[in-house]
Computed example of a mutant assay.
Amino acid sequence: MPKRYFDNPGPDGAQRPIALSHRGFAPDGRENTLPAMAAALDLGFAYLEIDVRTTRDGVVMVFHDERLERVTDGSGRLADHSLAELSAVRVRGSEPIPTLEEVLERWPGVRLNIDIKDDSSIQPFADLVEKHGVHDRVLVAAFSDRRRLRVLRKLSRPTASSAGMAVNALIKALSPLKLTRLIAKLARVDCVQVPLRFRGLRVADRNFIRRCNEAEVPVHVWTINDRATMEELLDDGASGLVSDRADLLAEVMVAWGAWPQYN
C-alpha cells in the first residue's frame, strides 16, 4: 500500500486527519486556478483536490467541467481545443487554465488528489506522473473505476487511489459483512472518498466510518462546507474532509490540533 501520500503526522508522530481544499480556495469562483491553489496553501493546506481534462493535442489541464462556459469566457468542450487555443481563455475573466505540469513543477511538496475526468487523460496523465516521479504525492481518483484502474496499470510504482462509484457502492453495501479490506485489496483502493449523502441517504455515517477504519481503509468525505458537520465527521473518525470552505476547514483543524498539515 502506498502509505506515504497519506502521511500527516503531528508532533507526537500520530497520524492526523487530512484536510483537502476542493479545487483550491476560490470564493471568487476562480476554481482550479493557480491563485486558488496558492490561497489554500497560504492557509496551511498540504493537500489539494483538483480535476483534470486533456486538450485536443494531448496536454493535461486542471479543469472540472466538460465544457468551458460555466467558469470561463470560452465556449465548447475543452477536449476540442488545443493548448494554444486555450491560452486565450480566462477563468472568471482573469486567470488562465493551468496545466497539470505547471502545478507539479510550481509546488513540488504538495499532495494532489486528482480526479481524472475523461479517458483521453489516461495516458498523458500517467506520462506526467512517470516524468516527474510523483507517485508518492498524487492520489488517482475517478468516478469511473475502469478509468482509475487503467491509469494505475500504466504506472511503474504503487500510487495511491480512491474508489470510484461502483466500488464505493460495493464497500458501503458489504461493509457490515466485514468484506471492506478484501474489496479494497482486489479493487486496488487505498481509501474511499464519499459524499455525506447520496440521493437523500446518509453514506458517511458513524457505523460505515467505523467499519472502514477497522479494515484500515481511510474514509474521506466530500464536500463539507459547514463547521458542525466537519466536527461531527471528525468525531466519528473520518480520516479526511474535502471542502470548498478552506478557511473554515483550517479553523476546525486548528481547534482539532491537526494544523498545519505535513508538507
Rank of each mutant, 00 (worst) to 15 (best):
R181G: 13
A14Y: 13
F6S: 05
V217E: 07
R137A: 06
E49F: 06
M230Q: 03
P2G: 08
E101I: 07
S161Y: 00
V60R: 00
D12V: 09
Y262W: 14
L128I: 02
A228D: 15
G24V: 08
A79S: 15
A38G: 09
V62E: 00
P260N: 03
V110C: 11
P17Y: 00
V91L: 07
R106K: 12
L139D: 01
R67S: 12
L128E: 08
R188E: 13
R56K: 15
G200I: 08
R92Q: 10
E95I: 04
D57L: 11
L179V: 03
A163M: 03
K154L: 15
E105G: 12
W256Y: 13
A141I: 08
V138H: 03
R211A: 07
E231Y: 06
P2Y: 12
Q261T: 00
D145W: 00
G257T: 09
R77I: 11
E105W: 14
G93H: 08
L177R: 15
P176Q: 04
F125T: 04
L182D: 11
G29F: 06
K154W: 08
R90S: 08
F25T: 02
N225Y: 10
K185L: 15
G74A: 07
L86F: 06
E231L: 03
D12L: 11
D65M: 03
R211N: 06
D115K: 02
L112W: 06
K178S: 07
H64I: 04
L68S: 05
S94D: 12
D57M: 08
P176A: 09
E231S: 05
N113V: 10
S82H: 06
D57N: 10
Y5M: 09
E102G: 02
V254K: 02
G164W: 04
F198S: 14
T33N: 05
P96F: 01
S121E: 04
L149F: 04
G133S: 14
I114K: 05
M253E: 00
P195Q: 04
L86R: 11
P158T: 02
V167G: 02
V167I: 15
N207H: 15
V129N: 01
P35T: 05
F45C: 10
L149A: 13
L20E: 12
G240M: 08
L196T: 01
T223K: 10
G24N: 06
L128F: 07
F208E: 00
G74R: 01
F45N: 01
V192Q: 04
Y47E: 11
H22Y: 02
R202K: 15
L104P: 07
Y47W: 09
R188P: 11
E130A: 13
V189M: 01
E251Y: 00
M230I: 03
F198V: 09
P9R: 09
R90H: 06
Q123G: 11
T180D: 12
D244A: 07
Q261N: 09
D115C: 05
L186Y: 05
A160E: 09
R53Q: 02
P195F: 02
L170K: 08
V134C: 13
A84N: 11
V219D: 05
K131N: 06
H64D: 02
L241F: 00
G237C: 06
A163C: 05
H132F: 15
L20W: 13
V89L: 07
M165I: 15
D65S: 09
M253W: 00
D65L: 13
D73I: 04
Y5R: 08
R111N: 10
F143H: 12
V194E: 02
